[in-house]
Simulated scan of single mutants.
Amino acid sequence: MLSTIGDLGEFGLIARMTARFPHTDDVILGPGDDAAIVRAPDRRVVATTDMLVEGRHFRRDWSGPRDIGHKAAAQNFADIAAMGARPTALLLGFAAPAGLPVSWAEEFAEGLRAECALVGATVAGGDTVRSDSITLAITALGDLQGVSAVRRDGARPGDVVAVIGDLGLSAAGLALFLADSTVGHPECRAAHRRPAPPYAAGPAAAELGATAMLDVSDGLVQDLGHIAAASRVRVELQSSALLVPAVLSDAVRTLTRLGAIECAPVDLMLAGGEDHALAATFPEGTVLPPGWTVIGRVAEGEGVVVDGAPSDARGWDHFSVTS
């Protein structure tokens, strides 16, 4: 019986994984040739790439292969949505030990397939290679469908700042895993294992005239700092406008009791990453759809302030000694 991907071989592994990815109208030629062919009806292609490294972005004792597949696709599709585009296709670089069970690779592919299905995309191709640990390199493509891309440099003084999606839950989930793998709070743990970006909100925000937008992957304050820098403005946030979910408050109480953190729930909403919410700026007076929450304004100046003062909320930095 072929129980590991080493037993199966490279081409057997590719066949097992690609069999799970459906054909879509966006992909003219999918896996099996030297390169894929993807439609570009808008004549512009939005592209992004991201990596997940075992032990840095996920741990197999915390997350199952389906969770990791969902997460790998989600964090890339969130970037496509943040540009105001519709995700169309993924390219997958899959590096893994030869002793990895075939079932793990198949379940991972199922997670990718299921997340792709949420947006109507598919895996168009990729590569496999042997390595000492699992590393995933994902490239996502998207279609702007005739609208202007929403960049980071368009915010203007007078705009409102709004967010949609979860904030702080993934950070709480990570802290729970690090503190005690047996403690409850499944909502926060699930948010860390398998984020749920508000994909449809990105293109809808572009249609509404959003002036700047991004995916909150490294922390709300830190990421809004990118908009502030690119747009040469100051972003002024009001922490009281952030709606703290009860599940986050409950998790923070547990974490405080365990001595794992010393902060308020809103602090995780300001600094925690990997929920993949969307943050955007809109012209004043824009009527926002349900789900968006206005949390501040854009003003002349620079940087990000919270409740009138510079914030010490620090987000994720891969090369920081404290991350």
Results as ranks from 00 to 15, higher is better:
D42I: 03
G168M: 11
R113W: 02
A277W: 04
E107C: 07
E110Y: 05
G168T: 11
W62H: 12
D153A: 14
G168S: 03
P203N: 09
G202A: 11
A212G: 14
V161N: 15
L268S: 04
D143G: 12
R151G: 14
W104P: 02
A82K: 00
L144A: 10
G273C: 03
D215R: 10
E110D: 15
A200G: 14
A105E: 08
A162H: 15
L169Q: 09
G285Q: 00
V123I: 09
Q75G: 11
H57L: 00
T286K: 02
L237R: 08
M51E: 13
L52T: 04
S170M: 06
T49C: 07
A229L: 08
H70L: 06
R232M: 07
V161Q: 14
V244Q: 02
G154C: 05
A117T: 14
L278M: 02
T49V: 04
A19C: 09
F282T: 12
H276Q: 01
E300S: 15
T4H: 07
V252R: 00
D33W: 00
E187A: 12
W316M: 10
A230Q: 09
L167D: 14
E187I: 03
R152V: 15
A137E: 11
G285E: 03
R193A: 13
L178C: 13
L100I: 13
S133P: 02
L29Y: 06
D67F: 01
A149I: 08
A98F: 10
R113K: 11
P101I: 04
G303E: 07
P289L: 12
D25T: 02
E115L: 09
I37A: 13
E54I: 02
L141V: 01
H70A: 08
L248C: 07
R194H: 01
P22W: 05
A264R: 12
D42Q: 03
G9P: 10
S240R: 11
G126E: 12
V235D: 14
G69V: 09
A81F: 04
P157L: 08
